[in-house]
Structures are given as structure tokens and as C-alpha cells.
């Protein structure tokens, strides 16, 4: 029984079967990659996991509890953090403030009316946020406007924000999309460091095979809304069905 269990999930958009009969089990403390050609339903699946979409059929459970019908912030409070394809950060806030928000969300929950307390005197939160920034080698940028950073730094900040919540499951949606090779390699190193430094389960959706094969312990191949095959990276590499799914797409 994995920490994340997806059973018989189906999702239709009008006449389009975006997902049909998807079964997936992500083992605790593993790195699980979901790959597949464009339009395979990877992002739809991810959105079903975090509460952005509700599947038409099937069930999604995290640590034995169903996530269906819960709002994104509730699912997040259960221990699932999501990294977006384009970095979603608080661009108008400083880097340190960006880090403080997940720290506050973890300590005070989904809502707390602390309108009279001085934010910068909350040593617990400030220290935790600064510590996290030090850990991610971003402490020198603490006073910067988050929006003015490079894309690689924004990605790093977003991942740091997710980790500050100490999630049990980290979902990454094409974390290296649109990145230069050097930034991609940095992100791979960062994810390896995260994986090795704490108990955490990582599920990653990715196009870049280099990233997938550097990180994943298990890989699920999705094609036309259904899992084609699930196996270890070594077995996936030479799998005829996988080659067919990808090559089939390139012929178009």
C-alpha cells in the first residue's frame, strides 16, 4: 500500500476521455516519475490529486484518507505540496516574505487572524524562513523582490516554499520545462539533495528524459489517458510499448 493510491480514476472533458481507468500507487519515500507524450493526461492526473479537478470516477487517497471533494488548501494541509510548471511565487513580496508564508501556514493553519502582531518580531517564523533560505543557498537574496529573480531562482524558491511546509508528498509538474541545461542540472542536484536529506515522497511529471532517468526510482508511462506500463527506469528504457508510444507521436 503506497502513500498515494489512485484507483480507477477517469475524467472526461465533453467527449474527450482525458483519463480512463488510471491506477497508480506511489510508494512512501520513493521518487516516482510519470511520463508520456503530449496530451497523455499527465497534468489532468496531477490536477485530480491536488483538488483542482474532481475525477468523474474512481478514488484518490493519500495516507489512507480520500482527497476527493477537498479544497486545494485542505489537501495541502494533509501534506501534499505542489510545484507548478511555471514557478508560482508571490512576485510582489520579498524572498524572505515568500518563505515566511508557508512557515505561517504550517504553524497557524489555513486561517489565523493575527492582525496586531508584528510580523518581523515573530522570531520562530523568521528564523525558520531564514534557515530554509540558508539551506537552499538563497539567503543573500532575502530582501529581493521575488519577481525580479531569474527563472532558475524562482523555481528554487518555489521548491523551498513547498519544503518549508515539511510535506510528505511533493508533486512536481515539469519542474525543468523551459530551462537552460545548466539550470536543469542544478534542479536535478537540488532534488537529489532534498531526497537524500529528509524522508519525503516525490512524484514528478516530466518531459525531459535526462531528468527522469537521473531521479526516478519508478516510472509510469501514460498514453492517451491510461497507464501503459509501470516499471524501473532500466526496464522502461528498452520497453517496446514505450518506444511505440513516443515514436508513434513523432511520426505525426
Amino acid at each position: 500500500m503506497g502513500i498515494l493510491e489512485v484507483k480507477n480514476v477517469g475524467k472526461r472533458f465533453g467527449g474527450l476521455h482525458a483519463l480512463s481507468d488510471v491506477n497508480l500507487s506511489v510508494a512512501e519515500n520513493s521518487v516516482h516519475a510519470i511520463i508520456g507524450p503530449n496530451g497523455a493526461g499527465k497534468s489532468t492526473l496531477l490536477n485530480c490529486l491536488v483538488g483542482k479537478l474532481i475525477p468523474d470516477t474512481g478514488s484518490v487517497s493519500f495516507d489512507g484518507q480520500s482527497v476527493l471533494g477537498r479544497k486545494p488548501h485542505e489537501i495541502n494541509q494533509m501534506g501534499i505540496s505542489r510545484v507548478f510548471q511555471t514557478p508560482e511565487i508571490f512576485g510582489d513580496l520579498t524572498v524572505l516574505e515568500n518563505m515566511m508564508i508557508p512557515c505561517l501556514a504550517r504553524r497557524d493553519g489555513a486561517f489565523a487572524l493575527h492582525g496586531y502582531r508584528a510580523m518581523m518580531r515573530d522570531r520562530e517564523i523568521v528564523d525558520r524562513a531564514e534557515h530554509m533560505l540558508e539551506d537552499m543557498h538563497m539567503i543573500d537574496k532575502r530582501g529581493m523582490h521575488a519577481a525580479s529573480m531569474s527563472r532558475g531562482d524562482k523555481r528554487r524558491l518555489e521548491i523551498a516554499m513547498c519544503l518549508a511546509q515539511q510535506p510528505r508528498l511533493l508533486l512536481l509538474d515539469e519542474p525543468t520545462a523551459g530551462m537552460a541545461r545548466a539550470d536543469t542540472n542544478n534542479t536535478i542536484e537540488l532534488l537529489k539533495h532534498i531526497k537524500d536529506s529528509r524522508p519525503i515522497t516525490i512524484a514528478i511529471i516530466e518531459h525531459d528524459m535526462h531528468v527522469v532517468f537521473s531521479l526516478a526510482e519508478r516510472i509510469t508511462v501514460l498514453a492517451q489517458g491510461t497507464p501503459l506500463v509501470e516499471d524501473t527506469p532500466d526496464n522502461i528504457k528498452g520497453h517496446p510499448k514505450v518506444r511505440e508510444a513516443y515514436l508513434g507521436e513523432t511520426e505525426h
Binding site: V50, K71, P72, H73, N76, S81, R82, F84, E88, I89, F90, G91, D92, L93, E97, M100, I101, P102, L104, A105, D108, A112, L113, H114, G115, Y116, R117, A118, M119, D122, I125, M161, Q165
Partner: peptide, 20 residues
Amino acid sequence: SPFGMMLRAVKSNQQRLNYT
């Protein structure tokens, strides 16, 4: 205050706030 910071976060990126 932390409350004020959250309000600024609402203005800046409500989606990220929900997923935080």
C-alpha cells in the same frame, strides 16, 4: 502583521496561496 502579509499574498498570487 502576519495577517497583512497574507492579504498582500492574496493580491500577489492567490493560486500559490491556496496551494500553500
